[in-house]
C-alpha cells in the first residue's frame, strides 16, 4: 500500500504564505495614508527631496513604526474583532496567525522603526516614539474600552507622522508642523465618527464605547461638521504658512468646500448614503491635501 506523499513547501512559498497572512495585520490603506502624511510633512519643509537616503530612511522607519503599532493594536483588540462580523475574518480572530507570532512581529517592527528613526534624528525619533506610545499605550491599552473620547488620543497619534516628517525636514518643531498635526487630529473625527455611525451595531455588540452610542447621532453629526470646518481651517493656515502657491491654495479651498458641504448635508439630511459619501470623501480630501502640501510649495 502506498503511503500518501507529503509535499514540503519551498522556502519562497512559505515566505509568500507568511506575507499573505501578515499583510492584513498592518491595515495597509490606513498605514499608507499615514505614511503619505509623514512624507508630505517632510517635503513641506522644502528641503531637497533628492536627499534619497533621508527620504528612504523616513519612509522605512515610519512604515515600520506605524505597522508595528497597528499589529500590536490588532493583538490587543483581537477579542473585540472576534465579536464583530466586519472584523471576525482578520488573521488573529480567525486563527490564521497566532497571538505569539503577531506580538513578536509587532514588537520587532516597532523596535526597528523607532530605532531607525532615532538614528536618523533624535528629535524625529522622539516624535515617532510619541506617536507609537499614544497609539499603543494611551489609545489601545488604556482608553479605547473606557471612553469614546479615546479617539482624541488616537487622533493625536495620527497627527504624529506629519509632525515627525516636518521635524526631520526642518530640524525643529515649528508652528506649521503643529498646525498640520492639528489638521490631521481635527480630521480624525470625520473619519472615525462616520465609521462608527456606519457600524454602530457592531461596536455596541463588541462593547466598545463610541461617540454615537454615548451622545446620540445628532450630536455626533454636529461634531463631525464642526471638526470638518476646523480641520479645513487648520489645513488652510498651514498651507498658507508653507507658502503654498495661489493655484494650489484655490484647489485646497475647493476640496475643503466639498468636505464642508458633505458634512453639513449629512447633518441636515442624515442618511446612510450621506454618511458613506462623507466617510469616503474625507479620506480623499486628506490624500489630496497631503499631495498639495508636498507639491504645492513656492
Amino acid at each position: 500500500m502506498n503511503s500518501p506523499v507529503k509535499t514540503i513547501p519551498s522556502l519562497p512559498d512559505t515566505l509568500r504564505g507568511k506575507l499573505r497572512a501578515y499583510w492584513p495585520l498592518i491595515k495597509s490603506l490606513q498605514t499608507g495614508l499615514l505614511l503619505v502624511t509623514g512624507l508630505a510633512g517632510y517635503m513641506s519643509s522644502r528641503c531637497p527631496v533628492t536627499t534619497w537616503p533621508t527620504l528612504l530612511g523616513l519612509s522605512g522607519s515610519l512604515f515600520l513604526a506605524i505597522s508595528g503599532s497597528t499589529v500590536l493594536n490588532m493583538v490587543f483588540d483581537r477579542d473585540i474583532d472576534a465579536r464583530m462580523a466586519r472584523t471576525a475574518h482578520r488573521p488573529l480572530p480567525s486563527g490564521r496567525v497566532s497571538v505569539g507570532e503577531a506580538t513578536l512581529l509587532g514588537i520587532v517592527m516597532s523596535a526597528l522603526g523607532i530605532g531607525w528613526a532615532l538614528l536618523l534624528s533624535p528629535l524625529y525619533g522622539a516624535v515617532v516614539f510619541a506617536g507609537w506610545f499614544f497609539d499603543v499605550v494611551v489609545y489601545t491599552l488604556w482608553l479605547k474600552r473606557r471612553t469614546p473620547w479615546s479617539i482624541l488620543w488616537g487622533g493625536i497619534s495620527g497627527g504624529m507622522p506629519i509632525l515627525a516628517g516636518r521635524a526631520l525636514g526642518t530640524g525643529s518643531i515649528d508652528w506649521i508642523g503643529l498646525t498640520l498635526a492639528l489638521a490631521v487630529l481635527l480630521w480624525i473625527p470625520t473619519h472615525i465618527m462616520t465609521f462608527s455611525l456606519r457600524h454602530a451595531k457592531d461596536y455596541r455588540h463588541a462593547g466598545v464605547p463610541t461617540f454615537p452610542a454615548r451622545y446620540g447621532e445628532c450630536l455626533t453629526r454636529i461634531t463631525i461638521a464642526l471638526s470638518s470646518i476646523a480641520a479645513a481651517v487648520a489645513m488652510g493656515s498651514a498651507a498658507y504658512g508653507i507658502g503654498m502657491t495661489w493655484g494650489y491654495l484655490r484647489l485646497l479651498v475647493v476640496l475643503s468646500a466639498g468636505l464642508l458641504t458633505l458634512a453639513i448635508s449629512s447633518l441636515a439630511r442624515p442618511s446612510w448614503r450621506a454618511n458613506f459619501g462623507l466617510f469616503k470623501y474625507a479620506s480623499l480630501y486628506m490624500l489630496g491635501a497631503m499631495l498639495m502640501v508636498a507639491a504645492g510649495g513656492p
Partner: peptide
C-alpha cells in the same frame, strides 16, 4: 478667477462624488 474656480471646482467635486456614490448621487 474665482468664478472659474467655482466652475471647475464644481466639476471636480461632481466627478469625485459620482465615483464615490455612483449614479444614484
Amino acid at each position: 478667477t474665482w468664478a472659474y474656480t467655482v466652475a471647475f471646482g464644481v466639476l471636480l467635486l461632481a466627478g469625485l462624488l459620482l465615483i464615490i456614490l455612483g449614479f444614484e448621487a
